[in-house]
Structure formats: structure tokens, C-alpha cells
Design a protein around this nucleic acid. Structure first.
Lengths: 110, 110
DNA sequence: CAACTCTATCGCATTGTTGCGCAACTATGC
DNA sequence: GCATAGTTGCGCAACAATGCGATAGAGTTG
């Protein structure tokens, strides 16, 4: 796999490697929102939130539509939601592994 | 969505938010490998490579099988490969958007 | 079994990157 | 003019990536 491609992918993953940004994506998956709607959901300075949005816009996951003073955000690539499913898969698999360890399974024990 | 869940997901995304680790995953998708096989592919100190592997192991994406002094790595959750497809989707969508901008499309122009 | 090699990991120091709030700024609408 | 919506510059603290050297097991050979 090409080096450039790896970097491009890493950039996208990085944009999603934050609870805050994941929450934004999750919220936008339910429809268009403007900053002012998002702000109450995030206990942080609006400048910080704006920067998170910028990061998502930079990699092309989120797009904006300006309407007067407002700036409506929406998900441009809903396929990122399928990534969520996968992360759940990883989490569940890991949980199973932990369980096995506790209940005396064979996985990698000391 | 729960806060803990968001954090767990972000952890997984973060583990994949690095060209090096993406390359490792890509390589492991073609089969089990030992550190000594991976090393020649990565122009970095072996301790650094080891750390990247540790990170992938920590989130449960990669597992290890020890055989004597060697340590064979393998992909535990192949679904991460489907994430790759999605990143490609995002990259392509972004490329299309750029093209539109150049060719005089309507998207977000100044 | 002692000495040695080979494989992988750990501790530490250095360097670069990220997340954050604050305050200042721009732009829109009343 | 003044409130509302959002972005930008700055500095700080926390975190991540890296190399180097030391260390810990496994296997090998005398």
C-alpha cells in the first residue's frame, strides 16, 4: 500500500480519534445541526468546539451550509457510521477475550 | 450515546490513527507475522515498532502467539479492514469535491 | 550449567503535536 | 449600535513518537 494513501487514511482516522468528535458525528448522523445547537451538548468553550468541527471539515467528513449568521453542519460521508459498528465489534471481541481470561480460558495466560 | 462508549471507540480509532500502525494492520491482514518479519518493512528502531504493536494489542485489534523467543502477531478483528474501505470512500468523496471546486461547481465557493 | 546470541520489551530523555480556555476578531441580523 | 454566531491567535499543559541503551527470556554450544 502506498505511503501517501496510508497517510491519508491515518488523517481520517485521526479526525475520528476523539470522543468529542465522535459525539459530533453521532449527533450529525441524526440530521443537520448548527453550532448553536451543538454547543449546549458540549461542556466546552465554543472556540474549542469550532476547532473540532474544523478538523472534521478538513478531512471531508463534515460539510457546512451557511445561512446568514448560522452555519449548518452535516455529515458528508455517512459511511463513517459503519466504522462505528466495527469499533463496537472490536470492543465486544475484547470484552469476550477478557471474560475468557477470567473464566480460565486459554488465551495468552501468563 | 454513552460517554464511556465514546471513549472506547475513540481509543480504537486512535490506535489506527497512524500510518505506521495502518501499515502493520495491512500487512497482518495477509497473515500472521513475527516482529522479525515486520522489522525490515519499517525504517525505525525496533523498540518503536514494538511499541506500535503494543498499542494495537492493547485495544484488541492484534493478538500475539508466542513460540519460543518469537512472537507471532495476527489480526484479531478483521472488520477493521472494512474501515479501510470506508476511509477510501471518504478520500474519494473529498477528491470529487475538490474536482468540483476546480471545474466551477457550486460547492461552497467563496 | 555457563557463556553467548537472538528476539522482544522497558526506562528515559527529547522533540513534536493536540486540546483547551481566554480574549480578540469577523460577519450577520435586529 | 448591539446581540448573536462562529473563527482565529496565543500560550500552556498534557500527550504521543522516536532513538538509545539496558533488560529479560529462549535457544544454542562448549
Amino acid at each position: 500500500m502506498k505511503d501517501e494513501e496510508l497517510k491519508a487514511r491515518a488523517r481520517i482516522m485521526k479526525a475520528l480519534a476523539s470522543p468529542v468528535r465522535l459525539k459530533i458525528v453521532d449527533e450529525l448522523s441524526r440530521g443537520e445541526r448548527c453550532m448553536c445547537e451543538l454547543q449546549p451538548m458540549f461542556p466546552m468553550n465554543k472556540s474549542t468546539l469550532s476547532r473540532h468541527l474544523t478538523e472534521l471539515k478538513n478531512v471531508g467528513i463534515v460539510g457546512e451550509r451557511r445561512d446568514g449568521a448560522r452555519c449548518f453542519l452535516r455529515l458528508l460521508t455517512p459511511c463513517v457510521l459503519s466504522m462505528f459498528d466495527c469499533t463496537m465489534g472490536v470492543i465486544r471481541a475484547e470484552a469476550r477475550r477478557q471474560t475468557k481470561l477470567v473464566s480460565g480460558g486459554k488465551a495468552t495466560e501468563t
